[in-house]
Amino acid sequence: MIWEIELTLFFLLVLTAVVALETRDLLAAVVALGVFSVFTALLLAVMGAVDVAFTEVVLGAGVTGVLLVAGIARMDRRSVD
């Protein structure tokens, strides 16, 4: 529990979340979401929840990203709003 590391991770977490929300390219948003998942996993590992961090990095950064890319492959890459 080093608060500097936690603060940095929280800052990067918010940054990647904003990037994922604001970008117009859906593929870039998926990549930002994967990075968000990695930072979440690091934060959980720092907090001592290694089990949850493991699940987060496998599902959040791995499988979910592939599933979202597979979904994007079936539609336009650009957001329409």
Binding site: V50, D51, A53, F54, V58
Partner: peptide, 11 residues
């Protein structure tokens, strides 16, 4: 250690 059925299934 860390792990279990759900994590193994995800991997």
């Amino acid at each position: 250690g860390p792990g279990g059925g759900f994590q193994a299934g995800a991997v």
